[in-house]
Amino acid sequence: MTDPARSHDATSPRPDEDRQAFAEASESLWRITFGPALWALHFAGSYGVAAIWCAKVAAKGQDIAPLRLGFAVVTLAVLAAIGWLGWRSWRQWDYLGDRDYENAGANHEDRHQFLGHAAFLLSIVSFVGVVYTGLPVVFVQACR
């Protein structure tokens, strides 16, 4: 549990500070979905684009090198985006600041850090997922 002396409940916050904290929490609630959403888009996009390219373009004897290059670029961009999200959420969790991995309190700070913690873990899962989705592009050299 968090130290009550640190939580906002112990003091009496002003209403506008409350509103700001709520807006922030709501924003980071959205943000925890970004990592998995990027992973999902990358996954569905990879399969869809590969299927269409192989059926419409490569079937006519075209090389799939542009497809693999495109995949590589998009995959690296998505990994960078997820990495950035992960970094942000790691800062938000602030683990090194207070060595606190239980954020169960019903107060602004715990909510703030908990959402950071969840987003950080989801970013890691999404990062690994995108790497695994991207590996076939490196190794599979033809449509069949």
């Binding site: 695994y132 190794f139 033809a142």
Partner: peptide, 19 residues
């Protein structure tokens, strides 16, 4: 994570050799 990535990297190239 690393074991699976290793296995994937080892087995995926086998697919193109099969084709």
């Amino acid at each position: 994570t690393f074991v699976l990535a290793g296995l994937l990297s080892y087995s995926l190239p086998l697919m193109s050799s099969q084709r």
